[in-house]
Design a binder for these strands. Sequence first.
DNA 1: GTTGACTCCGTATCACGGTACGGAAGCTAT
DNA 2: ATAGCTTCCGTACCGTGATACGGAGTCAAC
Lengths: 133, 133
Amino acid sequence: MALTISELARSGGVGVETVRFYQRRGLIDDPRPSRFGGAKGRRHYGDDEVRRLRFVRGAQRAGFTLDEIARLLELDRVNDRPAARTMARERIEALDRKIAVLQAARASLTRLAKACAGGPDGPCPILESFTDS
Amino acid sequence: MALTISELARSGGVGVETVRFYQRRGLIDDPRPSRFGGAKGRRHYGDDEVRRLRFVRGAQRAGFTLDEIARLLELDRVNDRPAARTMARERIEALDRKIAVLQAARASLTRLAKACAGGPDGPCPILESFTDS
DNA sequence: GTTGACTCCGTATCACGGTACGGAAGCTAT
DNA sequence: ATAGCTTCCGTACCGTGATACGGAGTCAAC
């Protein structure tokens, strides 16, 4: 606990500038609390910030945009389960579509790699790839 | 055959501006052939352009960047099979990693959706999602 | 108690893949 | 042969997610 911004960044595998970017986007807490009439000092970060940063990176891997991630954090704050559930389910559906597209593309590439493996003659129809998918 | 640019665009499910963007990137042929000392007229497009446009869209679905797609088209032009094979195989590996990430994310979301389905009490740990993946 | 790293903050810039705008010129249907 | 879509072309702008820069302030170690 009591991490500096660079330690927090390292803990999330991102750069300092990225942490600051997330702060500006409201994904990590207010860097300018300005409560107590000033508090100009250097900020320190704890478990909550580490958890949030991890969550942001994980949610990005799931394909959420930063705007959506901000909404998810707000849903967590107000404990809005139905909305959270809806967002999760919609993302699952999008992921399923995406995974299917990638698997079809993978199959096309496998076919291409196999075709181009033969000698200098024979087919290697790059341009004809992906015609199905 | 002998399509206008808007017909070509429609055939690929993209906008006219996107076709023009691809032309500038060299993905679809030179819009300014300037051969025959001028030829200022309006261009027409045929099967080759339709195939290229389809290929570009398919390769994008496979996760290739436009720069990579330009290289693939060049490899096709010079019939460089080993390089084509290498690009295909590297992309397959990247796709496998990506698909695994998306499947892990999907599993996390499924767990989240299930957890948040209960009544107003009980866990719905949005922020704890993706902790594994 | 000074030096050197780190931090804060605003603002600028980047990469990627488009998307839009505006003027001139070319078709096409009436 | 004129109105009114398209096209052509250069250039500008957009959204997303960062990443960089520069100057002032702060902290920690020697």
